[in-house]
């Protein structure tokens, strides 16, 4: 990408054109990406640093942060296990219906987050299909933490799988066969041979999965019930504060999420630059 500049005039535009296009492109990016990003932080510190800290230390805000972390801590490992299982099944064996399986795994990407939350309300909500059953046994899923975890899992489970499937398909089965021929069991083969080979792709997928899990809004909004201090994740808390015209506090919480986004971007770029070929071409979204 950062190769020697093309000095071949036959296939390069006039300098003016180049400058013009670059300028337009950079302006476009500045307008749509940079200014909003910067604005988040400027708005967050609008009333000074102390106000910023107070806003974050507020009990409801802390509860929201805790809930966000809790949901991520549950959803991400669940999706890691799924991603490993699904990519192992798809990459190491031949069976009919593989492409249907892969399409199913991609499904959450084509469904609106609101619909993702809706389906769980229809199943587990008070008037849902399993509503009466849950009420009988005093189980709350919708408007409670389990519902939030479920909706988050739905929206984020493809990330790890989508990274690992092409990667493991590319790597094939010969190293695993070698390990087996040397006497290793299935688990030993997985731990000692497969896992080290996919570690960077796995990390990349986990990174994306986590970013989405912590930042999910639409799906969680539908199933959450918005009970302050109890069923609000950080994105939902940002919404509540904003709707109460508590703009600065809202941006304060939002700035934490923006920091998470920046952190994700940095790590993502580092992984892509250093381990590009081990993450495979699929990383190009």
């Amino acid at each position: 990408m950062d190769g020697a500049p093309r000095s071949n005039d036959a296939v390069t535009e006039a300098p003016l054109v180049r400058f013009g296009l670059s300028a337009i492109g950079l302006f476009y990016l500045a307008l749509f990406l940079v200014i909003p990003l910067v604005a988040v932080f400027i708005e967050a510190f609008n009333k000074g640093f102390d106000y910023y800290l107070e806003a974050l230390a507020e009990p409801d805000a802390l509860a929201a942060i805790r809930l966000t972390l809790l949901v991520a801590v549950i959803a991400v490992p669940l999706n890691i296990v799924f991603g490993l299982a699904a990519s192992w099944a798809i990459a190491k064996y031949e069976f009919t219906g593989k492409s249907v399986l892969i399409t199913l795994i991609d499904l959450p990407f084509s469904v609106s987050p609101v619909i993702s939350g809706l389906v769980y309300v229809l199943l587990f909500g008070a008037q849902g299909y399993l509503g009466p059953f849950l009420a009988e046994h005093d189980l709350k899923i919708i408007f409670a933490v389990p519902g939030i975890v479920l909706a988050t899992v739905f929206v984020t489970f493809p990330f790890v799988a989508r990274e690992l499937i092409p990667l493991m398909q590319e790597q094939g089965t010969s190293e695993e066969e070698a390990a087996l021929s040397l006497g290793a069991s299935g688990w030993q083969t997985f731990w000692r041979v497969t896992l080290p080979n996919i570690r960077w792709g796995l990390l990349y997928g986990v990174l994306l999965c986590n970013a989405r899990a912590m930042g999910e809004f639409g799906a969680v909004s539908v199933v959450s019930g918005h009970v302050r201090g109890l069923t609000n994740t950080m994105p939902l808390h940002v919404e509540i504060l904003y709707n109460e015209y508590n703009f600065t506090a809202s941006f304060a919480v939002a700035s934490l999420l923006a920091l998470l986004a920046l952190f994700t971007l940095v790590l993502k770029s580092i992984l892509e630059w250093r381990y590009g070929d081990e993450i495979s071409a699929a990383k190009r979204h």
């Binding site: 990408m1 950062d2 950079l26 990016l29 990406l33 940079v34 909003p36 990003l37 604005a39 988040v40 708005e43 987050p113 994306l208 970013a211 912590m214 930042g215 999910e216 809004f217 639409g218 950080m234 994105p235 939902l236 940002v238 919404e239 904003y242 809202s250 941006f251 939002a254 999420l257 923006a258 998470l260 986004a261 920046l262 994700t264 971007l265 940095v266 993502k268 770029s269 630059w273 979204h285």
Partner: peptide, 23 residues
């Protein structure tokens, strides 16, 4: 250029609610 290239992915990483309020 590398930084610019990386920043293109911001909408993927930024939570939608944050984008919503700032826009």
């Amino acid at each position: 250029k590398r930084v610019v290239d990386a920043i293109v992915d911001l909408p993927f990483a930024l939570p939608t609610a944050v984008a919503g309020i700032v826009l």
